[in-house]
Computed example of a mutant assay.
Amino acid sequence: MPRDRDNEALPAGPRHVAIIMDGNGRWAQARGRPRLFGHHAGARRVREVVEACPDLGIKYLTIFAFSTENWKRTQVEVAGLMSLFRRYITKEMRALKERGVRVRFIGDRVRLDPKLIGLMNQLEQETAQNDLVHLTIAINYGGRDEVARATRRLAQDVAEGKLRPEDVDEETLPRYLDTCVLPDPDLVIRTSGEARISNFLLWQSAYAEYEFVDTLWPDFTAEELARLCRNYGARERRFGAVKA
């Protein structure tokens, strides 16, 4: 049974946790610093959360790093985020590999710069044999965009005769999603006090449990993650059925 940092036994917790990491900009502004200062603090917080996963029984962790809508932010902030992603991958690659973390990226890579794409590919390759924690990072990701891209690929297979229209059902589309090799999330967490899902894992989260917490992402700790996992373990999940 997984245990928290105080060695307290935890109830059955989520196997796959997805996090909308929100509040970096507000955290920085509250300290009189530029928004990018908050994004750098948020990146450091990712390491603590990833390291906490094995003790909490979390096998899969998916984090929302940059959405398809985030291109609407200022050029300075977008450029700073892209630089941060490159720096994070370069700095953390060895540690992630040594800690048994397998990294995947989801989202549309077409709009990303070639150097970042190359680093993403390298990190995926370097960690491909790891299996302790599966870390999925969503960059230039949007749930609607993902479904649209998946549908185009599915339609192409139908047009080429690889798939019959009558065989398409709710089990078919997931095979074309970016997350096709991952289980659906059990628990979705959003930080910063906002109570919306912001186009994140729309298909996959159909039966996920949600936690909306006031904590800004740079202040989110492994202890708070453990608390949310305990909350999850105390919930009764019926998936549309009723208790006998």
Rank of each mutant, 00 (worst) to 15 (best):
R31C: 10
N199C: 03
Y176L: 00
L116W: 00
I117Q: 12
E69N: 11
C180A: 13
E223T: 15
Q125V: 15
T74V: 01
C180N: 06
A195V: 12
L182F: 07
F85C: 02
D157Q: 06
R86N: 00
E194Q: 14
R73Y: 00
E69I: 06
K91F: 01
L225F: 15
R144Q: 05
W27R: 11
E146C: 01
D145Y: 05
V76C: 00
A159C: 01
A43G: 07
M21S: 13
P183K: 01
R15A: 12
L132M: 11
R99E: 15
G161W: 02
G193V: 03
I139W: 05
R94H: 07
S198G: 12
P54M: 02
P11C: 12
R87Q: 09
R164M: 08
A241R: 14
D22T: 10
G143A: 10
R35H: 01
E194H: 13
E124L: 08
L228C: 06
R73F: 04
M1Y: 05
I89C: 02
E209P: 02
V46T: 07
G143I: 02
R35L: 11
W71S: 02
E51D: 14
I106D: 09
R109W: 08
L225Y: 12
M82S: 01
T74P: 04
M21I: 10
Y207G: 00
Y88P: 06
V188F: 10
L182D: 05
F239Q: 13
T90Q: 04
V133K: 08
R33V: 09
G143T: 09
I117T: 02
L116Y: 03
S67W: 04
L216Q: 15
L228P: 04
K162G: 14
V46P: 06
D184S: 06
R164L: 14
T172I: 10
R99L: 15
V181I: 11
L119D: 13
K162C: 14
K59R: 14
P11V: 09
R196F: 08
E166S: 11
L116C: 14
L56K: 09
V49N: 04
E236C: 14
M1C: 04
D178T: 04
Y141Q: 01
E8V: 08
V103W: 13
D186P: 12
A18Y: 10
E98W: 11
G32W: 09
I20L: 15
D22H: 12
P11H: 03
E236R: 13
G32C: 12
A148T: 05
Y60V: 00
H39P: 00
L177V: 10
K97N: 07
G107N: 13
R44K: 11
M82G: 00
